[in-house]
Design a protein around this nucleic acid. Structure first.
Length: 209
DNA sequence: TTATAGATTGCCT
DNA sequence: GGCAATCTATAAT
């Protein structure tokens, strides 16, 4: 479904001031918007994972606050961006009130606008013909890919407030997913049995397999 | 001070 | 399906 900017508005802070499982589920279908040099880059969230904070051994917050994860212990609705495997940035949104460190990892988007810019940011040549699904999936399917496509980095974006109109925001345009699936989180070894990954059931931009 | 694993991706066989 | 790339946070020495 297309992005309708006229209906779109940021989610209120209370949206994020909840259990990360609820937030992850309810973020499906919302639109991540990046404004860069008057250009609009946008993608619909189709996959997200919940991280539960201090009681979750797989969470960065498990060992308590550090310089790296401090945003997680701050107020809800802020971007936590970290660098992983020497190559990739991952984007999270902080959840729960000040002092509690839950978050949601954004794992995949359906690209909506600024596709040509996304191809370039990913180091790919935009296809001359109409892009196929296999081309488009290289843009924002996967947590490291979507940050690169949107130019999201820790130095630039960590701790940004995602509930305000700015160069990085999450909007609700009224779209509601039909079918939502729950699965185990990907790429982790600890607490791997928990069903904390949420995906839009029939969406082709979901990662994995 | 040194070692190791990591919320990933892309290229190789 | 296997594995190297490449940096950093954290654990081990």
């Amino acid at each position: 479904m297309k992005f309708d900017p006229t209906r779109a508005r940021p989610l209120p802070r209370e949206f994020y001031d909840r259990d990360p499982r609820r937030v992850a589920r309810d973020l499906l279908g919302k639109v991540l918007v990046r404004r860069h040099r008057r250009r609009l880059l946008a993608g619909r969230i189709v996959e997200a994972e919940a991280y539960l904070g201090r009681n979750d051994p797989a969470a960065h917050a498990a060992a308590g606050p550090t310089a790296r994860n401090l945003v997680l212990f701050g107020p809800p609705g802020h971007a936590y961006v970290y660098f992983i495997y020497g190559n990739h940035y991952c984007l999270n949104v902080s959840c729960l009130p000040l002092g509690r460190a839950g978050c949601v990892l954004i794992r995949a988007l359906e690209p909506l606008s600024g596709l040509e810019q996304m191809f370039r940011a990913r180091g790919l040549t935009p296809p001359a013909r109409e892009p196929r699904l296999t081309d488009l999936r290289l843009l924002t399917t996967g947590p490291g890919r979507l940050t690169q496509a949107l130019g999201i980095t820790r130095p630039r974006d960590n701790a940004k407030d995602l509930t305000r109109f700015s160069d990085l925001t999450i909007l609700d345009d009224g779209f509601r997913p039909r079918r939502i699936l729950k699965t185990p989180r990907l790429g982790i070894s600890k607490a791997a049995a928990e069903q904390l990954r949420y995906v839009i059931g029939d969406n082709p931009f979901v990662s994995g397999r």
